[in-house]
């Protein structure tokens, strides 16, 4: 399933600072009476590339969706870039404009062109002048290697292209942190690589990234930390080398044998 990552990764640029980007303490979340996230503690430093893995229903997506408050947590604290997430809408919008998110199903705006998708938030949230926003958008579209599609509508693009536009759209807000929620799960195998390449490039430039994915090749090549979740809790975290070669918990071993076994 997972494509081997052939590219040579330059880890020298990928320095991790001491500054804390995200701090999650004793965070709990329930859906009704179902306890989805149980006592989550996680500190992410600037420049870290974290991959979250785990079986479906383990709460990985819910966890990263709490970081930009697409989901509300009921207990504990989440501090993003120095701002604590509470019910204060102003703070939420501030955090959201600093945190980019890429979704499994792209969620591009189908009624707007690729370029308009990319300039919408900078113009309306950041109040960037249109000309400047378009220039920035073209720069990021070039970076994800689809500047020639700028005038098309999302419905005219392939899945991989759409996901790259979605990444460019997030980058146009010049976010400090990027969240990826299974970015390649809805893609044909042929298109997974082009999206992963874009993400690797982003990692090399020092972006703070949290990525929920089943692409273990990507985790090995890019992540500095792999987190394994099961039943709403963090079961194990380690460097990718240790995590894959020497998993400690039984649950992790079972999971790895299932996804890497064939």
């Amino acid at each position: 399933m997972s494509e081997p990552i052939n590219r040579k990764i330059d880890r020298s640029q990928m320095s991790i600072s001491d500054e804390v980007a995200i701090d999650i303490r004793n965070m709990n979340k329930w859906y009704g009476t179902f306890h989805v996230l149980r006592d989550i503690n996680l500190t992410v430093h600037k420049g870290e590339r974290i991959v979250i893995a785990g079986p479906s229903g383990s709460g990985k997506s819910t966890l990263i969706r709490c970081i930009n408050r697409l989901e509300e947590h009921q207990a504990g604290h989440i501090v993003v870039d120095g701002i604590e997430l509470t019910n204060d809408i102003k703070n939420i919008d501030k955090v959201r404009s600093e945190v980019g998110m890429v979704f499994q199903h792209f969620n591009l705006f189908p009624h707007l062109t690729v370029l308009e998708n990319c300039t919408l938030a900078p113009i309306w949230v950041r109040k960037v002048p249109r000309k400047q926003a378009e220039a920035t958008a073209m720069r990021f579209l070039e970076k994800v290697k689809i500047p020639e599609q700028a005038g098309k509508y999302p419905g005219q693009l392939s899945g991989g292209q759409q996901q790259r536009v979605a990444i460019a759209r997030s980058l146009c807000m010049q976010p400090k942190i990027m969240l990826f929620d299974e970015p390649t799960s809805a893609l044909d195998p042929e298109m997974i690589k082009e999206v992963l390449d874009t993400m690797i490039q982003l990692a090399e430039e020092g972006m703070t990234m949290i990525c929920v994915t089943h692409e273990m090749g990507f985790a090995q090549a890019v992540a500095n930390r792999v987190i394994f979740m099961d039943q709403g809790q963090i079961v194990e975290q380690n460097t990718p080398t240790e995590f894959f070669s020497n998993p400690r918990s039984e649950r992790t071993k079972l999971f790895l044998s299932q996804i890497l076994g064939h």
Binding site: N68, D93, K94, G100, F103, F106, N107, F109, W124, M173
Partner: peptide, 12 residues
């Protein structure tokens, strides 16, 4: 997803 994408971009 449309609502979520709009939220995630910080649109009020």
């Amino acid at each position: 997803g449309q609502y979520e994408a709009a939220d995630a971009l910080g649109l009020d």
